[in-house]
Simulated scan of single mutants.
Amino acid sequence: MLHIALAKGRIARTVFTRLQESGYVFPEYSKDSRKLIFTDEAGNLRVTLVKSPDIAVYVRRGAADAGIVGNDVLVEDEEQDVYELLDLGIGRCRMAVAGIQGHQDVMQKRILTVASKYPLIARKYFADRFQPIDIIKLNGSVELAPLVGLSDVIVDIVETGTTLKENGLEAFDYFMNFSARLICNKVAYKMKHEELNRFMEAVKE
Rank of each mutant, 00 (worst) to 15 (best):
A96M: 00
I111N: 04
V97N: 05
R46C: 09
V47F: 08
I90C: 00
D87V: 01
G70K: 03
L88A: 04
R94M: 12
V57Q: 11
V47G: 05
L86Y: 15
V75Q: 12
Q101V: 07
G102I: 05
E143Y: 13
V59R: 05
A122P: 11
V73Y: 15
A42W: 10
E143F: 09
I68Y: 05
R61M: 13
D128T: 02
H103N: 07
I90F: 07
P53Q: 00
P119R: 14
N139I: 06
C93E: 04
A127P: 00
Q101R: 08
E76Q: 13
M107P: 03
F38E: 01
T113I: 10
F126P: 01
A122K: 09
G70A: 07
F130Y: 08
D81I: 15
E78A: 15
S141Q: 10
I68W: 05
F130I: 11
K109F: 02
Q131F: 14
A63H: 14
D134N: 06
V114R: 09
V69Y: 11
L112F: 13
S52P: 13
Y83L: 02
V50A: 15
K137V: 14
F130D: 12
E78I: 15
L88G: 04
A127G: 01
G91A: 05
K51D: 15
K137S: 11
R129E: 03
Q101C: 02
V106Y: 01
L86S: 11
H103E: 05
V75G: 04
L86G: 13
I111D: 01
F38Q: 00
K137Q: 09
A127Y: 01
A64N: 00
F130H: 09
V47M: 08
G89C: 10
D81S: 15
V57R: 09
G70Q: 06
A64Y: 03
R110S: 10
C93K: 11
D40Q: 04
V142L: 09
E41L: 01
E76L: 14
V82Y: 10
A66C: 12
V142C: 09
G62E: 15
P53S: 03
S141M: 07
I121H: 06
V73N: 12
D65M: 03
I121Q: 08
G140T: 09
L85W: 11
F130K: 13
V75C: 08
G91C: 01
R123D: 11
A122E: 10
I133E: 04
E84F: 03
Q131W: 14
D65I: 10
L74Q: 07
K137A: 11
V114Y: 07
N44I: 10
D105V: 08
D87T: 03
L74N: 01
I68K: 03
E143V: 08
R92Q: 06
Y125A: 01
I68N: 04
L45C: 01
V114H: 06
Q80I: 09
R110N: 10
G102D: 01
V106M: 02
V50C: 08
A127I: 02
V82A: 11
Y125D: 02
D77P: 00
I133A: 04
Q104P: 00
L45D: 02
V75M: 13
T113S: 12
V142M: 07
A96G: 05
Q108A: 14
L49C: 00
I136F: 02
G43P: 07
D128C: 06
R110A: 13
S116E: 03
I90H: 06
G67P: 04
